[in-house]
Write a protein that binds this DNA or RNA. Structure first.
Length: 830
RNA sequence: GCGGACGUGGUGAAAUGGCAGACACGCCGGUCUUAGGAGCCGGUGGGGAAACCCGUGCGGGUUCGAGUCCCGCCGUCCGCACCA
């Protein structure tokens, strides 16, 4: 008897997470707790988190943090009565997997399923409410079949095309490298200087959508996104207003160019107002006009220069600022001054931006100034600051476009920069030598990769019919399982070596043709995965129309801000295209997006080399998933991240132990028949703070509010059932297994997730008697307790009854009284 | 260089323009104990015996009142980076 009581007390005292968590994970699976009815759900809520790349190391604590934060929100919505769909999948194609596979010498097709199995185990262990029926992997043929289908839709709509583009090339590994594999101009594997090569690549015309992608960012009805993310996208799109100007060749140069008098060099500039100061032109080294322009005697130095440029990889070319270039030997005519100006080539002008050519205005552009100084080119001032002489010498480029007036600029003289811009654009248009345009920094999306581990681009090349799309009924074009998937020195994908696969009949004429050997970019896989989740069981369509209407767009999307630009922009683009092609009825895929913060460890970034990587499994094994979840959500604001320190985790664990005891008290006694008023108020305040905190993803303060409530209950010796039950419900999103177990102990036969989210009475969130801070000249001198909503006179009277207040007011006259009801009284004494 | 975020105790962090440091960790003291790396109780920004004074990176400003708003610096982190 005695023993029994002791046992019971011990069992009561501390919470044993391991058994409890296993029990509830089993029950959730058995009961289908986390499986909404996708066809009949009445209040659908699509709660999405960015799917992980299944690395060999397993989920790291950053993933856990992100997924838990998203799961907490999903569970919160569930408790608010929504039918929450929370799917998970794996972004398993791509260079990461391929490189890792090369390193360890195991085929990715073998490696990935192993990694996924490990991820699945970890994701289950953390207790997220995933609907596993809808799991997907981008490497699954039933998935990438539809990625290929997506390519075909864009191809058929004229939104995909092929053109030559530069890639990084390692001459030792004899392979194409992604930008992130180039470290300081060297190949990350063998440290060989990386070169650039030009290859034919597939592109999507995302630039067609630049204006729409930009406009929606300001449309709150479509997009409720973190400000930092929309700003990043705005910068990436890089809209700039300016003009296109066409320069003719001067007579001498035109003489030796084929079609000389008709050749025009088109430039883009944001400062057309400085046209009179344009003293030379610069073309990108690979500009198609260069060869035609350059007289014979210049050809050799141009070839040498191009060679020099080609030896630099793309990355260092974009970071090395030392200006280089050569004169082409040709001259153009400045349409404003009518003077001949030399045409140079230099790699500080990028072929990818604008027209690949610029008019150089060294007086008013830093780069042009630097270049002109180095090569002794003319520098002319055409803008002078207020009070500055028109001929004041230029020590550096004067780039301020808000101050100053035009000088040495003919009919523009005396105008401000904005006035001059308008005037010169009007003049250009009248003269037919240019026009005002909007230009974007955004480039078309290069989707081809000369790699193995991705979905083959579904195109066949026929000698007679050119690039032919693979008919949809022949999809998927399966990625063949080849032993040696290492890229080789041909510069084309390893797939080209697989003859049986490579040669295939032309879909049009049936003659022998060749398959496209490039695979598509991983970002294409992830640009539409949210559409697949609700429809994973359909193998005859990428996404079911009714399902998509019911569940999309995604209600809340959570992920890292490292994807602020590429993934999120590509997904938006694909949604717009599918919308325009009539496949979906929305054109923005993610209604609400929030970026989570980053976890650091004891003040430093986690990294393998530092040896400070937190392995979640160990912590979960030691403390339990719920404690771990609580700690992750408590260590800092979810959207800012925080510092993971081992000592901190005991706080949430002690808190759960206290709640466990409280539940035990309630089950045993349920005795607190009369609740103290301040406890009642605290209870309602807590419900308010937790509800608002979870909605705003401020989990750390929501947890703090619940801790305060528990401290109050313990201090007041209260274990009233309604309070404790509501506490358990509020805790359920954060500590789901724990809450389920408590709920059961409290006598409920159903899941706590069938319960209703607690409501609060706003009137009860404020005390009847309030403490008002009394300040004298803005400094706190006393606190007085007055009835709630007491008027100013009453508060002043109460304040002046206070000895300390009187002392500070002293002999002075109260000149002004500031009264914030229920909070503060400030007496300003003259 | 451009863009963004941020700067508060010993630590992680709280604060609709209104009591700076909630909550938690750690630490100190007490209690219980054969024991304590468990639990419980109390304390914990700095100075001061106290009354009080000083405190949110630095310097100005707005305001009755500023961690919060404005201007200018300094520093940290994250993007982008010769974008014409």
């Amino acid at each position: 008897m005695t023993d029994q009581i002791t046992d019971q007390t011990t069992a009561d005292r501390t919470y044993q997470p391991e058994a409890v968590e296993a029990k509830w994970q089993r029950r959730w699976a058995e009961r289908g707790t986390n499986q909404p009815d996708l066809d009949r759900a009445e209040r659908p809520f699509y709660n999405l988190m960015m799917f992980p790349y299944p690395s060999a190391e397993g989920l790291h604590v950053g993933n856990m943090f992100a997924f838990t934060g998203s799961d907490v929100y999903g569970r919160f919505k569930r408790l608010q009565g929504f039918d929450v769909f929370e799917p998970i999948g794996f972004d398993a194609f791509g260079i990461h997997s391929e490189n890792f596979a090369l390193k360890v010498g195991v085929h990715p097709a073998e490696l990935i399923p192993r990694n996924i199995a490990n991820f699945r185990r970890q994701l289950t262990r953390i207790g997220a409410m995933f609907d596993w029926r809808h799991e997907l992997s981008t490497t699954d043929p039933t998935y990438y079949k539809w990625t290929q289908w997506l390519f075909l839709q864009l191809f058929k709509a004229g939104k995909a095309y092929k053109k030559a583009a530069a890639v990084n090339w390692c001459p030792t590994c004899k392979t194409v490298l992604a930008n992130e594999q180039v470290v300081g101009g060297l190949c990350e594997r063998c440290d060989t200087p990386v070169e650039q090569r030009t290859l034919e690549q597939w592109f999507f015309r995302i630039t067609e959508y630049a204006d729409r992608l930009l406009a929606d960012l300001d449309d709150k009805s479509k997009m409720d996104w973190s400000e930092t993310t929309t700003t990043a996208q705005r910068n990436w799109l890089g809209r700039s207003e300016g003009a296109r100007i066409r320069f003719a060749l001067d007579q001498a140069s035109a003489g030796h160019v084929v079609g000389g008098p008709d050749v025009r060099i088109e430039v883009f500039t944001t400062r057309p107002d400085t046209l009179f100061g344009a003293t030379y032109l610069v073309l990108a080294p690979e500009h198609p006009l260069v060869d035609a322009l350059a007289p014979a005697e210049a050809q050799q130095r141009i070839a040498a220069y191009r060679d020099q440029v080609a030896r630099h990889d793309l990355v260092s070319r974009k970071t090395n600022r030392e200006k280089t270039g050569v004169f082409t030997g040709a001259y153009a005519v400045n349409p404003a001054t009518k003077r001949p100006i030399p045409i140079w080539i230099a790699d500080y002008v990028l072929m990818e931006y604008g027209t690949g050519a610029i008019m150089a205005v060294p007086g008013h552009d830093e780069r042009d100034f630097e270049f002109a100084e180095k090569f002794g080119l003319d520098i002319v001032r055409v803008v002078a600051a207020e009070g500055e002489a028109a001929d004041a010498p230029l020590e550096q480029a004067f780039t301020d476009d808000e101050a100053g007036r035009l000088v040495h600029s003919g009919f523009l003289d005396g105008m401000s920069v904005p006035e001059a811009k308008r005037a010169i654009v009007a003049w250009l248009e009248r003269e037919g030598v240019g026009e005002g345009v909007v230009n974007y920094r955004l480039h078309d999306w290069c989707i081809s990769r000369q790699r193995y581990w991705g979905p083959p681009i579904p195109v066949v090349y026929c000698d007679e019919h050119g690039a032919v799309p693979v008919p949809e009924d022949q999809l998927p074009v399966l990625l063949p399982e080849i032993e040696d998937f290492r890229p080789d020195d041909t510069g084309v994908s390893p797939l080209a070596r697989h003859e049986e696969w490579y040669f295939t009949p032309c879909p049009v004429c049936g003659k022998r043709a060749r398959r496209e050997t490039d695979v598509s970019d991983t970002f294409l896989d992830s640009a539409w995965y949210y559409l697949r989740y609700p429809s994973t069981e359909f193998d005859d369509r990428p996404f079911d129309a009714a399902r998509t209407r019911k569940w999309c767009p995604v209600a809340t999307y959570i992920g890292g801000n490292e994807h602020a630009v590429l993934h999120l922009l590509y997904s938006r683009y694909i949604a717009m295209v599918l919308h325009d092609l009539g496949y979906v009825d929305f054109d923005e895929p993610f209604r609400r997006f929030r970026a989570h913060g980053l976890i650091i460890k004891e003040g430093a970034k986690m990294s393998k080399s530092r040896g400070n990587v937190v392995v979640p499994d160990e912590y979960i094994a030691r403390w339990g998933a719920d404690t771990f979840r609580m700690y992750l959500m408590f260590l800092g604001p979810f959207q800012e991240g925080g510092d993971f320190r081992d000592e901190g985790i005991s706080g949430p664990r002690r808190f759960l132990d206290k709640v466990w005891q409280l539940v035990g008290d309630t089950v045993r006694e349920d005795a607190c028949d009369e609740m103290r008023h301040d406890v009642l108020v605290k209870w309602h305040q807590t419900k308010k703070r937790v509800t608002e905190g979870l909605e705003e993803l401020r989990y750390n303060t929501a947890i703090a509010a619940m801790m305060e409530l528990v401290n109050t209950l313990r201090e007041a010796n209260c274990c009233a059932r309604p309070v404790v039950e509501s506490l358990v419900v509020m805790l359920a999103p954060l500590a789901p297994h724990f809450a389920e177990e408590c709920w059961e102990r409290l006598g409920h036969a159903t899941s706590v997730f069938e319960a209703r989210w607690p409501t609060f009475d706003p009137a009860l969130t404020v005390e009847q008697a309030v403490e008002v801070v009394v300040q004298v000249n803005g400094k706190t001198r006393a606190k007085v307790t007055v009835p709630r909503d007491a008027d100013q006179a009453a508060v002043v009277a109460a304040a002046l009854a206070d000895e300390a207040t009187r002392r500070f007011v002293g002999e002075g006259e109260v000149r002004k009284v500031v009264h914030v009801p229920n909070r503060l009284l400030n007496l300003v004494v003259g």
